[in-house]
Computed example of a mutant assay.
Amino acid sequence: MQSLSGICKKLGTSSRFFLQLTPSVGFSTSCYFFIQKKKKNPYQEVDQDKYSNLIRSIVSTRISSQTPESLFQEDDLLYGPVSKYKAQEQESRPKVTQNTVLLLNPEKRNGSDTLPDSSIPLKIPLQKNKMPSVTRILQQTMTAKQILILERWKQRMILELGEDGFAKYTSDIFLQGKHFHEALEAILSSQDQLKELDEKTISSGYVASVQHVLKDISGVRALESAVHHDTLKYLGLLDCVAEYRGKLCVIDWKTSEKPKPFIRNTYDNPLQVVAYVGAINHDANYNFEVQCGLIVVAYKDGSPAHTHFMDSDLCSQYWSKWLLRLEKYTEKEKNQTTLNPD
């Protein structure tokens, strides 16, 4: 019988037994490390898809290519969009004019609505006056966005045409508009004035563009006539007052190289029209009242002009906006007078 120590020696030297014991030892050891790895790792909770682009952009170059725009985009990605609730709430509050002057004039509405001689349109000359013009008021109260758009357009045109070319371009545009208004005045007033114009002016693309509009115009009351508001103290030179499809309107003729199918495309033109409407209704030189407006945009290539009719309700809406611009101008002038009393 072998001794116990001999048996142990044989078992100790047996490779089979050693291989069988090894997993047991290894298992206990691996279990220990497995337990250690199960410890919660905060990085495993990161949304890898969400941050992959951000991480790639950071490690892809040594030189930072970040801009203010990219920083805002990263902030938006990390923290979500900025809440604009308060800003929107403040901007949504409409400004209310402090002026209570109405667009219409009750005194004229109850008075006569006929001219002494309806066949002769009024043409009151524009006289020198300390009152600001409608054009000046609108120019001095443009928004920052309007100024930026205008400046960008100017710089782009100068880049394409040069300083001298841009000056010639603006001069040509002014002359074309002047000839267009002269042709319309002649067409709407008398045949004698029409004969004095050259054929080139009469047959221009702008005149051809408004032919379908002229068919709907009748009862011309005023042409290229000065108007001023007795109460609000401003003046202007309107293009035309006539009936358009039976509605008495202040008509403003505009020229454009680009289509303007919607009234919003005409920018401040509706404010100009209602300013003239309100002035006529409060000008003693005119014994009639106007409630509507019409903007006609003519095109150089002769394509049909776009018409934007403004009924009494729409005119009332734009009248409130005009009063705000007028108040803004008045306040601006007061501030400048205070800073420069001389």
Rank of each mutant, 00 (worst) to 15 (best):
P304M: 08
S52Q: 13
N129D: 11
Q20L: 11
Y318Q: 03
L294A: 01
E151F: 09
L184A: 10
K195R: 13
A305S: 12
V59G: 05
V250S: 05
R109M: 12
L232E: 12
L71F: 08
P94N: 00
I173S: 15
K254P: 11
G162R: 06
E151G: 07
P94I: 00
S118N: 05
T61L: 03
S225P: 08
M310T: 02
H181K: 14
L104S: 07
F34Q: 09
F174L: 13
A87R: 00
K38R: 15
L175V: 14
F27Y: 06
R156V: 10
V290E: 01
I263G: 01
V273E: 06
E151N: 14
L19S: 04
P106R: 07
N41S: 14
L314A: 06
S204L: 09
E163S: 13
F262P: 00
T338F: 13
V25S: 04
Y234L: 10
L238N: 10
K10M: 12
F33E: 10
E151R: 11
I55D: 01
S203V: 02
Q336I: 14
K195D: 12
S30E: 07
P23D: 03
I280G: 03
F309L: 04
D76C: 08
D252A: 13
L77H: 03
T22I: 03
C292F: 00
P68V: 03
A222D: 09
G26D: 07
A305C: 12
T338S: 13
K108E: 06
L214F: 08
S189L: 13
E243P: 00
L188M: 15
Y244C: 01
Y276M: 10
V297E: 02
V296P: 01
S118V: 06
S60P: 07
F18P: 00
V25H: 01
P341N: 05
T114G: 00
Q140I: 11
G177F: 14
N53M: 01
E74W: 05
S119R: 08
S14I: 04
Q291N: 06
P270N: 03
T255I: 15
E185Q: 14
L11F: 14
V290H: 01
H228K: 13
V59R: 08
H212R: 09
I55P: 00
K145D: 01
E199G: 02
L104Q: 04
P68N: 03
H229C: 13
R93W: 00
Q146Y: 05
A242V: 06
S133G: 15
L314C: 04
V25A: 04
V290P: 01
V227Y: 10
D239M: 10
E185K: 15
H179A: 08
K108P: 03
N281L: 06
E185R: 15
F288L: 02
S83N: 13
E182C: 08
D311I: 01
Y244P: 01
L324Y: 05
K154V: 09
A87T: 00
H179P: 05
Y244W: 10
L271W: 04
E91L: 00
T135F: 15
R221Y: 15
K123L: 05
V82D: 02
N110Y: 08
P125E: 13
D216I: 03
I149M: 07
H228I: 11
L223V: 14
E89N: 00
K130R: 12
S65V: 13
T266C: 14
K128H: 11
E224A: 12
T67I: 07
Q291G: 02
V210K: 08
L4P: 05
Y43V: 13
G219Y: 03
S5H: 12
